[in-house]
Structures are given as structure tokens and as C-alpha cells.
Design a protein around this nucleic acid. Structure first.
Lengths: 102, 102
DNA sequence: CTAACGTACAACCAAATGGTTGTAGATCAT
DNA sequence: ATGATCTACAACCATTTGGTTGTACGTTAG
């Protein structure tokens, strides 16, 4: 989970996730649009891959990068569990305010 | 957004968020349950506070830490937008498979 | 075959991170 | 008033991060 959130804590990497969710792209295609070296983008993709957020598939000399929705859902599930917690806090506070003892 | 995900990329900080979502706690109360110094926990709280994920309220010599659901929702919203993207990819693939040209 | 392309990877660097200890200021209890 | 408690903050350290450049290797095109 650390790695997933860590990987998402960078604008370039979030953009790569966004783009590869829409459609698979090669590392070169990705790299073209960022103001940094190819190697830097390669490292970003590696971070995402280690976190499981994207997978790479070899296709000739190219590597097709594609996002992995299942891992994004794990982050979503955690935030959703947080949402449940504060909803229950709100419920308790409501109960208090309404004088409902149970 | 970087700061929000960065702050969530640590198990101790996620646990602090979880606990302070349920109920507010002082920095000392939080610190008691982790195998690290008080100062280290203080730093974790500071990271969360900088990201807006928690707020501190002075109460005598204590500081009450409480999570801020609104900021968690911003992270949720981003992941939800990702979900929409891959859902639309799935729709396009379905359309292709069914031979629907539009 | 050879040149260009796409990728991988190592080495290096500055800055940030996650921890420590130590010191000091408020506040509370006795 | 004094001591204990809660917090803040600085200084320090090892590790990680995010970037760079350079080199090498497999693949495609001419």
C-alpha cells in the first residue's frame, strides 16, 4: 500500500497512469510529452510497475505500458474504508445532538 | 495532490488518519502506540497537517488531532476519475468486440 | 550490413524523507 | 513555587528519491 500511494504522489506518474488507463502507450510515446529525459520517464514507469499500477508488455523493440485498474482499486478501497469511519463518526455525533441515548 | 498521496504513503500516517477519523486524539495518545520516538510521531502528524489531512486544535497543553474528511475526498475524487477512464476503455473494447462501429 | 530507434541500466548528484537526541517553552498538578 | 507533562523545534544522520549523463543491447528500416 505504501508503494501504491508513493507512486501516486507525483504528477508525472499520475499523468502516466491516466494516459495508460485510456490506452496503452510505449515508453517513448509517454516520454515525449514531459520536460525530462527519457531515462527519468523510464524510472517513473518503473516506480509505477513496482507498485503494480502499470504493466509492461514487450512488442518488438517497444514496451507497451498499460495501467492496472485492480491495483488502483486497492487504493480506492482504503479511502472508502476511511469514508465509512467518518460517516460513523457523523452518525454518533448526530445521535448525541438529537439526544438519542442509543 | 502530491502532498496528500505522499502523506498517505506511510503505514504509521495512515493509521493516524484512521484513528483520528474515528475520534480526535492528542499527539501523546497517538505516539504511545508506535515503536518510535514522540518526535517522530510529531513529524508524521506535521506531514499530515501540511497535506491538510488532519488539523490540530490546542486544548490546554495538549493538541487534539482530528482528520479532515474533505481532503481525503479529494484523493478519492481523483481515483474515481481514473475509474471512469478505464470504464470508458472497457466500453470501447466492448463496442469493438460486438462489432458495433459506433 | 549498417544505421537509427527503443529500451535498459549503471553511476552520479542534490534534495527530501524518516528516524534519532537534545533543548526549551507552556501548562497542569501538588 | 516546583516538578511533571505535553508539545515544539533544531541539529544530525542514513537512506531514498528524482533527476542527470553515458554506455550497451536488441530490433527495425534502408
Amino acid at each position: 500500500m505504501d508503494r501504491i500511494f508513493r507512486a501516486l504522489a507525483d504528477a508525472t506518474r499520475r499523468d502516466i497512469v491516466r494516459r495508460t488507463l485510456i490506452d496503452e502507450e510505449t515508453v517513448s510515446q509517454l516520454a515525449q510529452d514531459y520536460a525530462m529525459s527519457f531515462a527519468a520517464v523510464q524510472k517513473h514507469v518503473a516506480v509505477l510497475e513496482t507498485a503494480g499500477l502499470v504493466t509492461k508488455q514487450q512488442h518488438g523493440r517497444e514496451r507497451l505500458v498499460r495501467a492496472n485498474p485492480a491495483v488502483i482499486q486497492r487504493a480506492q478501497a482504503l479511502l472508502d474504508s476511511y469514508e465509512e469511519l467518518w460517516q460513523s463518526r457523523i452518525s454518533r455525533l448526530d445521535a448525541l445532538l438529537s439526544g438519542d441515548e442509543q
